[in-house]
C-alpha cells in the first residue's frame, strides 16, 4: 500500500506539472517540483532533522524551435557531447533493466541539448532550506522571477548562472506548502500572476 501511495503521489505530481506547462500561454521548457524533506542523519538524530528541498518530480517539454536547441548544442565541444550521449545510453540501459550500455540506440545517438542536460543533472541536486534559488524562495515564502539572460547571470545564484549558460532566459521559483515549483524557459517571459495562482491551486496539497 505504501508503494502504491508513493506511486500515486508521483503520478499526481507529474499530472500537475504537465497541466501547468501545457496549459500555460507562455512557452516553458520544463517544470520541476522541489519537495521539502528532512534529513534526520544530518540533523544529528534529535528528531528535528535538517530541512532541504529535493527532487520531487519533473516534466520536460523541450524547445519548440528545434533549430534553436540544436544551435545551443553547438557550443558544447565534441568530448562533452560524447560524454552526454554516453550517459544517456547508460541511463537507458539502467532503466530498461541492464541491456548493453554501449549498444546503439536512436535516442542515445541524438545530440543531447543543453536544456535536456540541465534538467537531467537537476535530478541529482538538492538544496538546504534557504540556499540556492529554490531554497531561498521557500525560506522567504516568496516567488523569485528572473527574466532575461542578464538577470540570471547577475543573480549571484549558482543554479541561475548555470541555467543561463545552458540557454535559459527565464527561471522562476514559486513556493508552495511543502515545496517549490521551478519553471525554466529559453524565452524571456515576464512575471505573471496567472501562473502563480495556478501553482497555488495545483500544489498546495494541505488545502
Amino acid at each position: 500500500p505504501a508503494a502504491a501511495q508513493s506511486r500515486l503521489n508521483e503520478d499526481t505530481l507529474q499530472q500537475r506539472l504537465q497541466a501547468l506547462i501545457e496549459g500555460a500561454r507562455e512557452t516553458w521548457t520544463y517544470a520541476i517540483y522541489w519537495q521539502l524533506s528532512y534529513d534526520s542523519i544530518a540533523g544529528g538524530g534529535d528528531g528535528e532533522g535538517t530541512a532541504f528541498l529535493g527532487w520531487g518530480d519533473g516534466y520536460y517539454k523541450g524547445e519548440e524551435d528545434k533549430g534553436k536547441s540544436k544551435k545551443r548544442c553547438s557550443s558544447v565541444n565534441a568530448v562533452e557531447q560524447e560524454h552526454r550521449k554516453r550517459v544517456i545510453r547508460e541511463l537507458n540501459a539502467l532503466i530498461s533493466g541492464g541491456a548493453v550500455a554501449g549498444a546503439a540506440d536512436d535516442a542515445g545517438d541524438e545530440e543531447v541539448t543543453d536544456t535536456e542536460w540541465f534538467f537531467l543533472v537537476s535530478m541529482t541536486q538538492s538544496f538546504l532550506n534557504g540556499t540556492g534559488l529554490p531554497g531561498q524562495a521557500f525560506l522567504h515564502c516568496r516567488t523569485i522571477w528572473l527574466s532575461g539572460s542578464g538577470a540570471l547571470a547577475g543573480s549571484g545564484c549558482e543554479r541561475a548562472q548555470q541555467g543561463q549558460i545552458y540557454g535559459l532566459r527565464t527561471l522562476v521559483c514559486i513556493p508552495s506548502d511543502n515545496g517549490v515549483v521551478e519553471l525554466g524557459s529559453t524565452d524571456v517571459i515576464q512575471q505573471s500572476s496567472d501562473l502563480m495562482e495556478k501553482v497555488n491551486t495545483l500544489f498546495n496539497f494541505n488545502n
Binding site: 527532487w55 518530480d57 520536460y60 547508460e90 541511463l91 540501459a93 539502467l94 537531467l120 535530478m123 541529482t124
Partner: peptide, 28 residues
Amino acid sequence: ITAVGLPQARKASLARFLEKRKERVTST
C-alpha cells in the same frame, strides 16, 4: 551524473524523461 549514482527514488522521473526523449527523437 553517472547512471550508478542516481537515487532509486528518482528513477520514475528518469524513466519518463528518457521515454519522452525517445519519442521526440523518433518523431523528427
